[in-house]
């Protein structure tokens, strides 16, 4: 009667019950919309009038869309610049703070503050700093004798780097906190053993810290790649994708097509491309991790 099978079943029922709240939310607000977006991407739909099936039409248009090409380039630039910068700086901060220097708590708070600051507020203040004529950054540059400082957000060359700087500033603290936790999990014995074998400074870092930290590094890498692909608010507030689409990124372009031009089908097709890129990037990471990630 109350055999093994029924116990296992009761466990399963309990498990599903516990999972239910988040499962329901996930299906309603993530699962179904993703499926819907996939279907919408094969239609022409302005939200108001009935959708018209166009097969792969949206995808073909994307392939020929010069602005979409530029947007892809900008997004790649953004990811390739901001992810390494975030990781290296985050790790450097974590290493520095892990040495037990004075005022540790203060620095931790200072570096983490941007993470919890409202993106919109921070972006507005940064836009002020970057103001080409009245801004603080160019005031400093001209104080150092630079007579023709960049126009930052008004220049097609400098606008994207400026947005990247803000993004890095905003995300370094998050990487730092994760790295700090990772560093504190490395057993002291390893360093002691290493010291006996004569490992010092750089070698200590390269042969003990880095490999032991690799699961954290892997996690930070995945999170920051996904986060960078999804950059939106900074662009929205600082540049509105300008000048001349120099800071238009994938998510912004999706927003533009969806909510400014009401081309939901086209926007969904672009969203599917983003989904595919992030999926492939993540899968590749998972594949590669066996070569460099060491789980203690």
């Amino acid at each position: 009667m109350a055999g093994r099978g029924s116990l296992a079943r009761r466990d399963a029922v309990a498990a599903w019950l516990f999972l239910a709240p988040s499962l329901v939310l996930f299906i309603t607000f993530t699962g179904l919309p993703v499926v819907a977006a996939f279907l919408i991407s094969f239609t022409q739909w302005d939200l108001f009038n009935p959708a018209k099936f166009v097969g792969l039409g949206n995808y073909m248009t994307l392939a020929r869309d010069g602005i979409f090409g530029k947007v892809m380039g900008n997004t790649a630039y953004f990811v390739l610049a901001s992810v390494p910068a975030q990781m290296v700086l985050g790790l450097a901060c974590a290493l520095a703070l892990n040495r037990g220097i004075r005022g540790q708590t203060f620095f931790r708070v200072a570096y983490f503050l941007p993470v919890v600051t409202s993106t919109i507020a921070a972006a507005l203040v940064w836009a002020w700093l970057f103001n080409s004529n009245f801004g603080l950054i160019n005031a400093l540059l001209s104080a150092f004798g630079i007579t023709d400082p960049p126009r930052w957000l008004g220049s097609t060359t400098w606008a994207l780097p400026a947005v990247i700087v803000v993004s890095v500033w905003q995300n370094v603290g998050y990487a730092m906190v994760l790295f700090l936790a990772g560093l504190q999990n490395i057993p002291k014995d390893l360093y002691d053993a290493g010291a006996i074998d004569g490992a010092q400074g750089w070698r200590r870092f390269y042969y003990i810290t880095l490999p032991m930290l690799s699961p954290t590094t892997f996690f930070v890498l995945i999170i920051s790649i996904i986060g960078s692909f999804q950059v939106f608010e900074l662009v929205f507030v600082m540049t509105n994708a300008g000048p001349a689409n120099a800071t238009n990124t994938l998510v912004f372009y999706i927003y533009q097509n969806g909510f400014q031009f009401y081309q939901m089908g086209y926007a969904s097709a672009a969203a599917m491309v983003l989904f595919l890129i992030v999926l492939i990037a993540t899968l590749v990471q998972y594949r590669l991790q066996t070569r460099w990630v060491h789980y203690g």
Binding site: R151, T156, G242, P243, A244, Q256, Q260, F261
Partner: peptide, 22 residues
Amino acid sequence: ANYVDITNLYIQPALDLVWSGE
């Protein structure tokens, strides 16, 4: 009707280049 699209996609970006002197 599609003035907004044309402006945002083409005219504004072209003007941006003039305003930035590029």
